[in-house]
């Protein structure tokens, strides 16, 4: 890490849906340029945390500080303007609109920028370079893309907002293993370009192999945190989340 600047600090955040609390005092942080992953089983609160950071949910307690600014309870549209882009679970693409229109709307939050049109052209070029398949399908409607292509479009759409922090919710969900490795290869490229990423992923081993650090969430709390290699080597993590039963049993 060349820059040790803090990008995101989530401090003792509680959050949930309506009266149903999911997170109970979760604290995490993400440094500039880092790829941090949240792992844990279903219902542990990974997606809830991501949604709370992105403004989709409002925290009922604690604070979310992004780049030195308290953004607790921000609206999602203001969050994108602030530089946070969420690639949501289920992608939420505009299915009957074309790939090109989806990308154009990805840049919607930046429309007031003074040099918008030149930046837009630049970003479009970067996105097409990262996802050549999208360039071939500009005029096709998003709904006609394959699952993997839709996930790529969802990531590309988020990148069009020039996020300083990219939030990814289960990018591998429902995709074939080959497609998943393609998606993660792209995440590695983003990482080498210095994009800061907070990644929620069901598949802990994939996530940890592509991240710098990770947090293990369990029933709304941070149970464990560490560098990706520490977590990969941790017996509990291996046993519960990586499914390496035998090794850890024989290790104890």
């Amino acid at each position: 890490m060349t820059e040790a600047r803090e990008m995101l600090r989530v401090e003792k955040v509680s959050s949930g849906y309506g009266h149903v609390g999911v997170l109970e005092g979760v604290s995490i942080h993400v440094m500039h340029g880092e790829v941090v992953t949240l792992i844990g089983s279903n219902g542990a609160g990974k997606s809830t945390l991501l949604k709370t950071v992105a403004g989709v949910l409002s925290p009922t307690g604690g604070s979310v500080v992004f780049d030195g600014r308290d953004i607790s309870g921000i609206t999602p549209e203001k969050a994108v303007e602030a530089g946070l882009a969420l690639v949501p679970e289920g992608r939420r693409l505009f299915g009957s609109m074309s790939v090109g229109e989806n990308l154009e709307l990805g840049a919607y939050a930046r429309r007031r920028s003074r040099s918008f049109s030149s930046e837009f052209a630049e970003d479009l070029e970067i996105v097409h370079e990262l996802f050549p398949v999208l360039g071939e399908r500009v005029d096709q409607s998003a709904a006609t893309l394959s699952g993997g292509e839709q996930q790529m479009l969802a990531i590309a759409r988020a990148l069009m907002s020039r996020p300083r922090l990219l939030l990814l919710d289960e990018p591998s969900l429902g995709l074939a293993p080959k497609v998943i490795s393609e998606i993660f290869a792209i995440l590695d490229r983003l990482r080498s370009r210095g994009v800061t990423i907070l990644l929620v992923e069901q598949d802990a081993s994939v996530a940890l192999r592509h991240a710098d650090r990770g947090y293990v969430l369990r029933t709304g709390r941070v149970e464990l945190e560490g560098t990706a290699s520490e977590l990969l080597a941790n017996d509990d993590v291996r046993m519960i989340y990586l499914g390496s039963w035998k090794k850890s049993v024989s290790g104890t």
């Binding site: 989709v56 999602p76 549209e77 994108v80 949501p88 299915g95 609109m97 990805g106």
Partner: peptide
Amino acid sequence: RACSIDRDGARLVGID
């Protein structure tokens, strides 16, 4: 149009 297709998705790209 985006808003009519997916309102939550629209908010995520910054549409008020």
